[in-house]
Amino acid sequence: PDDLEKRARELLKRGKNPDEIREYLRNAGYDQSQAEEALKRAL
């Protein structure tokens, strides 16, 4: 898994919901489609 996916998994483990994770990834400078893909793979 790429770093983005790892980060998404990490956040899920900490109890973040998908919307929070999307926002976090966007704020971290990733584009929307990258964030969506990583989140899908992590779920």
Rank of each mutant, 00 (worst) to 15 (best):
R7W: 15
E10V: 05
R9T: 08
L4Y: 05
E23K: 06
I21K: 00
L12M: 06
N27C: 10
A42Q: 02
A35M: 09
R7A: 14
G15N: 03
Y24K: 03
L39E: 00
A42N: 02
Q34T: 11
L11H: 02
D19P: 03
A8R: 01
R14Y: 09
D19M: 08
D19W: 08
G15S: 02
E37F: 03
N17D: 11
E37C: 09
K13F: 07
K16R: 09
D3Q: 10
K6E: 12
Q32W: 14
P1M: 15
G29C: 03
E5D: 10
A8P: 00
R41V: 06
L43M: 13
R41H: 07
D2Q: 11
E20P: 00
R7E: 11
G29Q: 02
K6M: 14
A28Q: 12
G15V: 01
L39A: 02
K16H: 13
Y30H: 05
E37Q: 11
P1K: 11
R41T: 06
R26W: 06
A38I: 12
A38H: 02
P18W: 09
D31P: 12
A38C: 10
L4R: 03
Y30R: 01
K13S: 11
Q32C: 10
D31K: 06
Q34D: 12
P1D: 12
I21F: 04
L4T: 04
K40G: 08
S33H: 14
L43Q: 08
P18R: 06
L43C: 09
Q34P: 03
Q32N: 11
D2E: 12
A38E: 02
N17V: 06
G15D: 02
E36Y: 04
K13H: 09
D2T: 12
E23F: 05
Q34V: 13
A38Q: 02
E23N: 07
R7V: 15
N27Q: 13
E37Y: 05
K6H: 11
D3R: 07
E36V: 04
Q32K: 10
S33Y: 14
Q32H: 13
D19H: 08
I21M: 02
R41K: 13
L39D: 00
R14M: 15
Q32Y: 12
P1Q: 12
N27K: 12
A35D: 01
G29N: 03
E10Q: 08
L43K: 04
D2H: 11
R14P: 00
I21N: 00
I21H: 00
E20G: 02
G15P: 00
L39P: 00
Q32G: 10
E23Y: 04
E37P: 03
A8Q: 00
E10R: 05
L12S: 02
R9L: 12
R22K: 09
R9G: 05
R26L: 14
E20D: 06
L4K: 03
E20V: 04
D3E: 14
K40H: 13
E10K: 04
P18H: 09
G29F: 02
Q34Y: 07
I21Q: 00
R26P: 00
A28N: 08
L25H: 01
P18K: 07
A8W: 04
A35Y: 12
E5W: 15
Y24W: 12
D31E: 11
L39Y: 03
Y30N: 02
E5N: 08
E37V: 08
E36W: 04
D2F: 12
E36F: 04
L43G: 04
K6Q: 13
E20H: 04
L4V: 10
K16E: 05
S33R: 13
Y24C: 08
D2P: 09
R9D: 03
E37N: 08
P1N: 11
K6R: 14
D19Y: 05
L4S: 05
R22A: 07
L25G: 00
K13M: 12
L43P: 01
Q34E: 13
E36K: 03
P1G: 11
D2I: 12
L39H: 00
K40P: 01
D3S: 10
R41I: 07
E5K: 07
Y24D: 06
A35Q: 04
R9S: 07
R7M: 15
I21W: 01
K40W: 13
A42Y: 04
L12P: 00
L25P: 00
G15H: 03
Q32V: 13
D2L: 12
R9P: 00
I21E: 00
L39F: 03
E20R: 03
E20F: 10
L12C: 04
R22W: 08
A42G: 02
R9N: 05
D31M: 06
K13W: 07
R26K: 11
A28R: 08
R41W: 06
L11V: 00
A38M: 06
L11K: 01
P1R: 11
Q32I: 14
P1I: 15
A38V: 09
Y30Q: 02
E23T: 06
R26M: 15
S33L: 14
A28G: 06
Y30T: 03
L25V: 01
A42C: 06
P18A: 12
P18T: 06
D31N: 13
L43H: 04
K16D: 05
R14E: 15
E20A: 06
N27D: 10
A28D: 05
A42I: 15
S33C: 11
L11R: 01
L43S: 05
L11Q: 04
N27V: 10
R41A: 10
L4A: 15
L25F: 15
A38K: 01
N27W: 09
D3T: 10
A42D: 01
A42W: 06
Y24I: 15
A8S: 03
R7N: 06
R26H: 08
Q32D: 14
G29W: 01
E10G: 05
L12W: 03
L43N: 04
L25K: 00
N27Y: 07
K16A: 13
R9C: 08
P18D: 04
Y24S: 06
E10T: 05
Y30W: 08
E10F: 04
L4N: 02
N27I: 12
D19T: 08
E10S: 06
E5R: 07
Q32S: 13
E36R: 03
Q32M: 15
K6S: 12
S33N: 13
